[in-house]
Amino acid sequence: MRNSRAFAMLAIAILAGFAAVVFASRWLVQASSGATVPVAVAADDINLGQPLNEAMVRTVNWPRDSVPPGTFDNLKALDGRVVRANLAHGEPVLESKLAPIGTKGGLSAVIGEGRRAITVRVNDVVGVAGFALPGNYVDVIVNTQEGGNRTDNQQSISKIVLEKILVLAVAQQVNRDDTAPKVVNAVTLEVTPEQAEKLDLARSVGTLSLVLRNQVDHDILRTGGATKQTLLDQPVAASAPVVEAPKPVRVKYAAHKEVKRDCIGVLSGVSGSQECF
């Protein structure tokens, strides 16, 4: 009798424990599902300029309280969108990293609003030994003749004409994650329309050089350019003063006036005359 009661109590305890486990697991599942939301992330590394498709992204459960703004939970909404920045594996796909809807893939999707892309020919020296990579900033120097005329009486001058210019691509490569130097023959720069005009004129009147600068340096320095005199610290010859031609002097002639003299009358017989002295 006692054994049967003990077995009954044991069975009841086992059933109660199993029920508690079931209810607790259901509560945890419901709590965890309510604390996460689906977020679209990159299924693999994606380079900028690539159009997305459903095979390149997937959804994962992301904590609701830490979801960054601009995420997507629908993979179909990302179909055909172009990436403006590199995405690493597992990185959330944000609206700020995508080009506007309707943009086609390629370098044009990376160009900022109101900007233009222009390509300049470089070599291993002009291209800063291959360290001018996509995502870096450079200054542009032109070496030409003063006044723009290549004559013997003009001296060479080097002048920074553009500052803090973004490098969009080197040759046909736009990947900004690669830090290895690449010696190429062309560099594509992002400029404003006014800067594009200056750059095109600069390469037609002289030779160009690129100067690599720090990415966080935003200072704009205005220089007067370097000439042979400033390079050798020679005094600049003072220019001869301009002598103006003498202005013609107008001579005014006074009207002749008759000089008054003392006169007396002389009578001779019946005739008379006047003598002045």
Rank of each mutant, 00 (worst) to 15 (best):
121 R>H: 12
100 P>I: 08
79 D>M: 05
95 E>W: 01
89 H>D: 12
145 Q>D: 08
87 L>G: 00
125 V>I: 14
103 T>D: 09
104 K>W: 06
101 I>S: 15
151 T>V: 15
157 I>R: 05
141 I>C: 02
97 K>H: 14
108 S>T: 11
94 L>T: 00
94 L>W: 03
108 S>C: 03
148 G>A: 03
141 I>E: 00
129 A>C: 03
133 L>H: 01
126 V>A: 13
113 E>Q: 13
101 I>M: 09
94 L>N: 02
153 N>Q: 15
79 D>E: 15
124 D>R: 09
155 Q>Y: 09
134 P>G: 06
93 V>G: 02
82 V>T: 01
106 G>L: 09
131 F>S: 14
131 F>K: 10
85 A>I: 08
143 N>F: 07
114 G>M: 07
102 G>T: 12
152 D>E: 13
79 D>K: 15
156 S>E: 09
80 G>W: 07
99 A>D: 04
151 T>F: 11
129 A>Y: 08
97 K>G: 11
140 V>E: 01
114 G>H: 06
88 A>I: 07
66 S>Y: 01
130 G>D: 02
135 G>W: 03
120 V>Q: 02
69 P>F: 06
91 E>S: 11
157 I>P: 00
133 L>G: 01
85 A>Y: 11
68 P>N: 10
147 G>I: 07
111 I>N: 08
107 L>A: 11
72 F>E: 01
104 K>Y: 10
135 G>M: 01
154 Q>D: 07
69 P>Y: 04
152 D>V: 13
80 G>C: 04
148 G>K: 12
111 I>G: 06
73 D>V: 04
103 T>C: 03
